[in-house]
Design a binder for these strands. Sequence first.
RNA 1: GCGCUCGUAGCUCAGUGGAUAGAGCAACCGCCUUCUAAGCGGUCGGUCGCAGGUUCGAGUCCUGCCGGGCGCGCCA
Length: 550
Amino acid sequence: MTPADLKDAVRAAVIAVVNNGDLAVAVPEDVVVERPKVKDHGDYATNIALVLAKPAGKNPREVAQLVAARLEQAEGIDSVEIAGPGFLNIRLSGDALGQVARQVLASGAAYGTNDRAAGQNINLEFVSANPTGPIHIGGVRWAAMGDALARLLQASGAKVSREYYFNDHGAQIDRFARSLLAAAQGQPAPEDGYGGAYIAEIAQRVTEQVPDVLSQQDPQEVFRERGVALMFEEIKASLHDFGVDFDVYFHENALHESGAVERAIERLRGLGHMYEQDGALWLRTTEFGDDKDRVVIKSDGDPAYISGDLAYYLDKRERGFDRVVIMLGADHTGYVGRMMAMCAAFGDTPGVNLEILIGQLVNLLRDGEPLKMSKRAGTVITLEDLVEAIGVDAARYALVRSSADSQLDIDLDLWARKTSDNPVFYVQYAATRAASVLRNAADLGLTVDDDADLTLLTHPRENDLLLALAEFPSVVATAAELREPHRVARYLEEKVAKSAQRFWDDCQVLPKGDEPVADTTAPRLLLWKATRTVLENGLGLLGVTAPERM
RNA sequence: GCGCUCGUAGCUCAGUGGAUAGAGCAACCGCCUUCUAAGCGGUCGGUCGCAGGUUCGAGUCCUGCCGGGCGCGCCA
């Protein structure tokens, strides 16, 4: 009996009461079944009676009694109590709960997947850091969270394309090229240019590739082209080492070279949303809620930055994506209005066809002090720095375990620690304990028996753990739907790992010394295997490994 | 000034309108001759920034105010 099964049972009970003529209401499509906070309130609770009371014109406790009487008859349900204003507190029969472990094993690596987003074709763009330098800490949050979200959406049945928008067009690239040239000539960085050791390094590599670069006719062009390519490879490589690979690396330049920008502008012109003023071409975004209209082609004839966004959005839609999701840093909050207006100008629905997720900034702390970053001083903290300090698993976990809405402080000392203070180690330790029990069992010649008698799992710790495992699919679905991967991390930590550690502490599994094999050994082994499966699957969704031993 | 966002325990953070607001850390007290003590149990700790409103019910939704962050260019 999973929560989903229980929902069906509750709904069936309501239908029965309605068909019986005792209740005159429309049966809701979805009913809420949740784990009560207080243990005395049973395994699950539903507020269905409170929801139906008003439309039914009865008081909630009356409705509760009608539904409870039916629900109590359902298979797998031990008891239903009416509590408080009209909650139904439900207790499952021991066997129904134990079945969860068997279901986990039957699904294996697929346990937790769901079809809530089936049929959606999603384009997920994230990181998209400029190719003018290494990926710094701001982009890393999205690398971890975007990749986790992609995995979650896929686990919910969506088709997902991970995409990286590579801004290799425009003035910033010129500044980058000038900076490389200056470095190669042994001159200081230009006033508006980029500094730091990586500039010198890239300049050096370009010089190695083209030894006579400085005597060529247009050396800056050589530095631009080769420098961008080298930076691009470096960014791709460090993301790959971080466990993040994209399906498409889209070059902004392509939009300008292929005529896609012009086509997008023509489309909008045809829809009547473009106008000329002061020698520039404008998009009337105010018509769609933006606070000012936006210049698309500047009066000097050059395309403004937004022109690329127009063409890029249209391109994504034409490639067949019905949902375009873009993850941006807090320094891009000002974009949202114009992007949504643009989406509407194309005749699409903002919030559905286009979603923009904004993530707040990340601070790194060492010895309780924030690490200050300065591009000028070259004290930029990069993805590699973070990985070097705490490792890929800890970095990814730290970055996804908090809501993107809140600014995040990452204490490097804490996350580098190999103790239980460090949340990722806490979860991984639970996973290794599960692995170790299974390994030790195998050494004793005990295999996991799918037919183990699960009614023997009656200990409160076993009960808690089973309830935790049963929640996994709905946690995955919710996290995907709300675009909140942190829900998975919190679930693994606070529900699964916690329950598993307690289970370990109170419920011996394997015989010690000359002890005979206990009746509980087989069902407990099965429960451990199910636990290991959920931890593996859950950590996998976050891009974090589940080690066999530590 | 306008817009977005955040404000929950000493600290870092959970809590998609439900019951007595949770977890980890920190502090203090316990539990290892036996499957990993890298763990477990317990104590302490809160006017959910403030004030109104909506609701049977508000940390959650609405309004105003206070405080922090970010953004408001024919830059990209």
